[in-house]
């Protein structure tokens, strides 16, 4: 069974590229483009293996999702979190709370290789 990756990104093209990168290495991908919807999805849906979280989102910001949902929900404690942002300072601020920080522009190859390494090795 493939691992579930939740991509929370409001830009359609970037979401598409990220999704292709992750699908290509065997992740099952779910896309959410809105902060509020992402909030509901995180609260109610199955816990993903990986969350790729954009910090600039409509309605509820990525920072809010990170500090108020992901970090507080026991079910999500094992979920890996990668934040994406164009603002290097934002990365500095939240770097300690997440597994990885990717500063935009994000390379397809870079994301693919990184997430590939994170996948649990098949025994």
């Amino acid at each position: 069974m493939s691992e579930l990756a939740l991509i929370i990104e409001d830009d359609e093209d970037l979401a598409n590229i990220f999704a292709e990168a992750l699908r290509g290495i065997g992740y099952e991908v779910e896309l959410v483009a809105d902060g509020k919807i992402a909030q509901e999805r995180l609260k109610n849906g199955a816990a993903p293996f990986l969350v790729l979280l954009d910090m600039h989102l409509p309605h509820v910001s990525g920072a809010d999702l990170l500090t108020n949902i992901i970090k507080k929900d026991e079910r999500l404690s094992k979920t890996m979190v990668i934040i994406t942002t164009a603002d290097a300072r934002m990365g500095d601020t939240y770097g300690d709370q997440v597994d990885f920080v990717l500063i935009k522009p994000i390379s397809f190859v870079q994301l693919r290789d990184l997430t590939n390494r994170l996948k649990p090795r098949i025994q």
């Binding site: 830009d11 093209d13 970037l14 590229i17 990220f18 292709e20 290509g24 600039h56 164009a86 603002d87 935009k104 522009p105 994000i106 390379s107 397809f108 190859v109 693919r112």
Partner: peptide, 23 residues
Amino acid sequence: VSHELRTPLNAILGYAEMFKESV
């Protein structure tokens, strides 16, 4: 500007990489 210019460029870069990687 920082956000709006970088995002589409990121997309162009990503798609070009996808071509290159024969996705």
